[in-house]
Design a protein around this nucleic acid. Sequence first.
DNA 1: TTACATACATACAAGAATGTAGGCAAATTA
DNA 2: TAATTTGCCTACATTCTTGTATGTATGTAA
Lengths: 205, 205
Amino acid sequence: MVRKTKEDAELTRQRIIHAAREVFLVRGVSRTTMEHIATQAGVTRGAVYWHFDNKIDLFHAMREQVFLPLIDRMDDTLLVEGSEDPLTRIENFLCGTIQVLNDSMETRQIYEIMMIKCEYVDEFAAVLQQILSNCSGIAGKLQLVYERAKVQGQLHAAHDPAQLTMDTHLFFIGLLHMWVKDIEGNQFRHQAIELIKTHMQLRRR
Amino acid sequence: MVRKTKEDAELTRQRIIHAAREVFLVRGVSRTTMEHIATQAGVTRGAVYWHFDNKIDLFHAMREQVFLPLIDRMDDTLLVEGSEDPLTRIENFLCGTIQVLNDSMETRQIYEIMMIKCEYVDEFAAVLQQILSNCSGIAGKLQLVYERAKVQGQLHAAHDPAQLTMDTHLFFIGLLHMWVKDIEGNQFRHQAIELIKTHMQLRRR
DNA sequence: TTACATACATACAAGAATGTAGGCAAATTA
DNA sequence: TAATTTGCCTACATTCTTGTATGTATGTAA
């Protein structure tokens, strides 16, 4: 078969992205060649180069598939004032993220690639900046919610929302890192939810 | 000059390790070739291969130069019961680590390499295990000190040393990661010490 | 002072990896 | 249905890397 319909082509594109993820995970981004990805996807380098300019283009395509949903979920869970109080909303957001990692192998693998299978140099240095910018965004939204919690009297009088935000932010970054690295699962993965609950409990009055 | 004395040779070895650090930092570990390192060190690949089997051998040599001192300092600061109370000892250890990062460019760069310029696959997967094992060691010692704090009545009655340990551990891992990634310094580096003090203040009764 | 080991430099062979250019048949459009 | 574009494959040409093998001059020990 040579030429495909548009739908078939899009399917090929997706297959290539999936293949890239699988190979990145095993070989690391740097050691992965376009040939590896092509073979894994069952096509040739020609097809890969047709759909993507180069490796980092492919990397970005892969990354988008987990980060766009993350932002959406964050807004929904954190900012929409439903029946939950602010601190519970934060707790739900953190637990929800862990839940996504548990449920979605794809997300799990992409996090793993970004954390321990990628070197942020040259073209990839910009990716790191995007990640940091994302983190700032998360921290910003967290702080909004902590400020709501303060207003609603959920916090100890001595606790400052900005400080609590940073503390929670760093805690969660650490948790994500260890969750991802703890492949065996016996150290952090099994007790991640409990760790979050404990962390939040420390700041309820 | 061809043949050197033992002292000269050791000097060459050190120069190669330093060169490797510098090149790893700029090009990432994977993209760094032995030729890059040799050139940076002012020698040829012959010299590099004489002193080190391959790149990961060099990587280990580089890593040792910061990790052995870390362990020592940890034991000194955390475990030696001097004039300080337990919670202060923990605070001093955390602040001390940040201080080392501030003072020692070498340490700073090696952390940066290990966190965002290295892919933990194949031969490097074992390095990640060592790091995790190191983390376990740190957590273990932290917990000992938190238990001392509990005995000495420094903690709230409701707080469990094991839980506080994990929370502090994850906070600090997150802090280290963000400290390293925050090259500009405006986000985390400048306020790292304050963040630690705030974190510890959350658990003093 | 004669061996031998050491500390490198140089040269070579072999295998990747990349990007591009050209080909080709089927899908799409006019 | 003719013309064009799309989606992909094949085939270079070129450039890196690696490991090793070999050369060699100098410390060093007997």
